[in-house]
Each structure stands twice: as structure tokens, then as C-alpha cells.
Design a protein around this nucleic acid. Sequence first.
DNA 1: TTAATAAATCGTATAATTACGATACAAAAT
DNA 2: ATTTTGTATCGTAATTATACGATTTATTAA
Lengths: 110, 110
Amino acid sequence: MTKNTANIIYSDVTEQTSRFAKALGHPVRLAILKYLSNQSCCFTGDLVDVIPLAQSTISQHLKELKNAGLIVGEIELPKIKYCIHQENWNRAKRLFETLFNEDFSNISCC
Amino acid sequence: MTKNTANIIYSDVTEQTSRFAKALGHPVRLAILKYLSNQSCCFTGDLVDVIPLAQSTISQHLKELKNAGLIVGEIELPKIKYCIHQENWNRAKRLFETLFNEDFSNISCC
DNA sequence: TTAATAAATCGTATAATTACGATACAAAAT
DNA sequence: ATTTTGTATCGTAATTATACGATTTATTAA
């Protein structure tokens, strides 16, 4: 029953969905996105006041959201303005819609 | 600028959304859910044939999906039948709808 | 020029995740 | 009674994530 770690290839949809989901998989990052959505953009400085974590930790979470493509940082010195990445956000929205519309409600055995 | 690790309290919605997102944040788990959705329920045995990972690894992923509440395992000896947890799946669906309907498209600065 | 501010990055510690093989266990088949 | 089958769990290794304080960098304000 030995199975290789074989670099499994997933569909782009699966890859991308899981990448987004992973980025959304931490309450601090959801809080950041929520905060961003309530501002018409915001600065990381604000986040440090709002979220009781070290600045470096928040910066790290911002980086992950950036890497996942969910936010972008525009330099607007002396601050960096973080915004939702509209296009990718909409993409994520569609991907999750697709995921949840694989309607499971017709499953009979449960 | 010292911040405590202070056990931050998040809203139930944030907690629950991040928990679901985390569970969805791995391609294998998405593949499992997809496979489950295409059967009218399935057995872990099938999954081992379909996904090139060790049985123990798949079992571990099933456990995480179970812990997140996204699937349930019904004993139907000699196998265990895994199914989507309808109620929680719908809950997840609603939570992600809520998340993505915090409409960010009115943000002007990006 | 110097100090202050915003943010990133570095180094590090700890914890969680992912994967494996081996083992255990319960029920079914032989 | 023994073997087979499906599944979980254990032990372990490697990787990734989370968090911190300290440092660095760039720019603005004094």
C-alpha cells in the first residue's frame, strides 16, 4: 500500500481556491480584510492600533495576504496604503461560489 | 510598541469562517470534498485509489475535515462512509457569501 | 543634520501541518 | 481460528506558520 509523495498535480481551480482559502484561514487575516473594507483603504499603522499583535506579526500577515494576491500595497509615503485587490478578490468570490455550488444537497445517504 | 500575544477574542463569525477556510486551504482536502460530492457518498478506500498519498495521510486529512465539521463519517461496516455535513456545509457557504459580500468595490483609492 | 515615523526584514523560538511507514483494531471472509 | 480488509492511530521527520523583539530602511518633520 506504499504510495509516493508524488508531486500531485491539481487543476488550476483547485490550486487557486486552496491558496485563497489558506490565506483566509486565520482570524487575524480576516480581521485585517474586514478592517480594510471598512476604510476606503487604510494604513498598516492603523492595524497595529486595532489588533493587539506586534507590528512585525501584522506585517507578516499582510505579506501573506499580499502573496495570496488578496491585497496590494501602494506606496504613499511615508506610509504604505493597503487595499483589497479587487480583481483577485472577485476571482476568489467566484471560486468559492463555484466550490459551494457543487451542490451537495442531492446526496441521499446522509 | 510592545504588544502582548494577548489571546485575542474574535467574533463567532470570524472564528468560524477562518476555521472553515483553513480546512479548505489544502488542495487534497478540496479534492476529497469534490470526490465526495461526485459520489452519493464514498469510502475512504476509494480515496486511496484516487489520490496518490498514503492511506494514513488521507485519513489525517479526513480527520481535519471532520474536525472542521465539513464531513461526517458514518460507520457502515466494514467500511466508514464519509459524507458532506450538509448543515455545516451550508453554514460555510453562507459565511463565505457574507465575507465576499462585504462589498469592497466601492473603495475609491485603488 | 538629526529625530521621528511607518513599515519591512532578520533572527529566533515554538507550535502546527504534512507526510510517511508501522502498528492496532474491528468485522468479514475464509 | 486465521486471514483479509478498511480504517484509525502512533511515532517520527521535515516543513511551514505564528509570534516576538531587534534592526534596517526610507521619508518626513524638527
